[in-house]
Amino acid sequence: MCNRRRRVDLIEPSVVGTRNVLNACLKAKAKRVVVVSSIGAVIVNPNWPKDQAMDEECWSDRDSCKTTKNYYCLGKTIAESEAFEYAKRGELDIVTVCPSIVIGTMLQPTINSSSLLLLTMLKENFVDSMHVYHDSFTEVDDCEKLSSEKLQDLGWKYRPLEESIVDSVMNYEERGLLLKK
C-alpha cells in the first residue's frame, strides 16, 4: 500500500497538473507554452550511450523507472510525453526545459526540492548565512552529460553560480529559512 500510495502521490500531480495547465492554455488560446519539467524526464535511461550528451532525444525509460520505483522521474516522463501529444495534434506549440536544479530567488511560497537541497548544504557547510566560507559545489567530470545547446542557440545564457547562490541566500534569509531550529 505504501509504494502504491507513493506512486500515485508522485505521478498524479505531475501528469494531472500538466494536463490542467495545457487545457487552460488551450482555452486561453496561448500561442506557445513552455513546460518546465525536470531532469528526471531524461536522466533515467540505462541504454543511452555514455559518451553522448542527453538532449531532447533522450527520455527516461519508463520500465527502468518502474523497476527502480523512481516514480518522480516516471511522472515527469509521462507528463512531458503527454505535453508533446498536444503538440503533435497541433493544439499547442510546446517547448520543454528540463533543469537539474533551480537556484536563485524562490518564486513559490513553499520549499521545493532544489531549494531544500541548497538550504541543507548552506546549513551544513556555511558558517554564516551572509559570509560564504566554504563553497561545496564542485564540478564532476564523470557525471552524465546534458545538453543545453538549443537553449543557448536561442540566446539563453547561464548566470554565474556565485550570483545565483547569493540571490538564494538573501531570499532564504528574508524568509527566515536560515535560522537554526
Rank of each mutant, 00 (worst) to 15 (best):
R6N: 15
A87V: 03
L178D: 10
I78D: 04
L179N: 02
R4C: 13
Y71S: 13
L151K: 04
K29M: 01
K29L: 00
F126A: 15
V102A: 15
P46H: 05
I39S: 01
C25A: 14
E85G: 10
M121L: 15
N70F: 01
Y72C: 07
V21E: 01
D93S: 13
C73K: 06
E174Q: 09
A53T: 06
P160S: 14
E173D: 08
G17Q: 11
K31D: 05
P99F: 03
Y172W: 09
F137C: 15
L118T: 08
L118W: 01
L10H: 00
Y71G: 05
P160G: 05
M121A: 13
A79P: 13
T105Q: 15
S147R: 06
Q108C: 02
T18L: 12
R159I: 00
N70I: 11
V42F: 05
N171H: 10
E173Q: 07
L10I: 09
T105D: 03
Q108N: 15
V132W: 04
P99L: 12
K50D: 11
I11C: 11
R4D: 12
V15A: 01
M54P: 01
L74I: 00
A24S: 05
L178Q: 11
I94R: 04
T67A: 15
D167L: 09
D141P: 04
W48E: 01
E91W: 11
G176Q: 07
G17M: 03
L107T: 13
T110C: 13
R6T: 08
W156P: 09
V44K: 10
L117Q: 13
Y71Q: 05
L151H: 00
V21I: 12
Y172T: 02
S100Q: 15
V42I: 15
E85F: 07
D61W: 03
V8T: 14
V42R: 04
V132Q: 11
P13W: 08
S60T: 08
S164C: 07
T67G: 12
Y71P: 03
Y86V: 11
A87N: 09
L107M: 14
V102S: 04
L117D: 10
L161Y: 05
C2K: 03
D135F: 04
T120D: 14
L161N: 10
V95M: 08
S14F: 02
V33Y: 08
E163W: 00
T77Y: 15
T77V: 02
Y72P: 09
V132C: 13
C25T: 03
K157V: 03
V15W: 05
H131D: 12
T67C: 13
R32M: 06
F126C: 14
N70V: 08
L107V: 04
S129V: 10
A28F: 07
R7I: 07
K150A: 02
P99V: 04
V21H: 02
L22Q: 09
G40C: 00
S38C: 07
C98A: 03
Q52S: 02
P160V: 09
A30F: 01
L92M: 10
S113R: 10
E82R: 13
K181D: 10
A83N: 14
Q152L: 10
L107E: 15
E80C: 04
V132R: 07
C143R: 12
D167N: 03
T68F: 13
V169A: 15
A83D: 12
D128C: 13
T18M: 07
K157C: 04
N20P: 06
A83E: 13
S14T: 14
A79W: 05
T110I: 00
T68R: 15
V42L: 08
